[in-house]
Design a protein around this nucleic acid. Sequence first.
DNA 1: GTAACTGCAAAATATTTGCATCCTT
DNA 2: AAGGATGCAAATATTTTGCAGTTAC
Lengths: 139, 139
Amino acid sequence: MQNKITNTLKKHQLSITDSRKKILSFFLESGSALAHADIEQKSSTEFDRVTIYRTLQTFVEKGIIHTIPTADNSILYALCKDDCIEGHHHDDHVHFICDECNSTYCLDHVSIPKVKLPKGFTSVQTNLVVSGVCNKCEQ
Amino acid sequence: MQNKITNTLKKHQLSITDSRKKILSFFLESGSALAHADIEQKSSTEFDRVTIYRTLQTFVEKGIIHTIPTADNSILYALCKDDCIEGHHHDDHVHFICDECNSTYCLDHVSIPKVKLPKGFTSVQTNLVVSGVCNKCEQ
DNA sequence: GTAACTGCAAAATATTTGCATCCTT
DNA sequence: AAGGATGCAAATATTTTGCAGTTAC
């Protein structure tokens, strides 16, 4: 785990610092998407609010995480798959938000179907967010 | 136009006030989605920032407008089609954001294809946002 | 040693709330 | 007249920026 973390940071030419390691581990452990507030809560007073902002921003720029648009306007961040190149995300997968537990998942193996746009419209990127009940809350 | 506006407000049991009429007219005129900031800019000093917040919130509650999640975390609002019932939006259509002119459109006639979710996941709502180049910026 | 990163303080921005006043019905 | 809507002020929350001190390499 610690190895995976430092490797990821190294691969993106970021220096290995405590806050970066910690924040990255939050994502790996949770398996779901996190909001700025989630991280702040998890970390308590370990590091500064500002550091979280800057770290998340850096991670997005480097292609380690990506943002997920949500209906309620909170920004969510989730780990990118390995083939996200710097400045060029491959986010064409489905995001799922559970209405029960409020977790957000990247359904990487569910791909977004092509949609037919009206004449004159050209698609560059597509974002699909499904909300409902996840497999943990099901029953 | 003025008729349509007052009718819409009446239909949702809202009292007809200047700010509501004005804000509703912005949506009808623009034809695309608007952010809080857009409205503030259009209205200049006609009415208070707080009134805009409250009006947008009321409109969303009443089903006159709905929010659109965007990647850059700005909240956008757009008119609902007539069959949005209070507290129960029918937003299952595609939203399109133009990277050139930054306008957002509701493509009401483009429906969202069903996606197959992993076992245990149940879909309640689906949100599809496509970004690219719109028909006005095309060429 | 140097460049990059962090923490703190503070500025800038965005959003919410309370209350008195005004407007719609 | 009564209830709802607005404006203003202020409280709260969120995000950004500058700079000095610290840390990674």
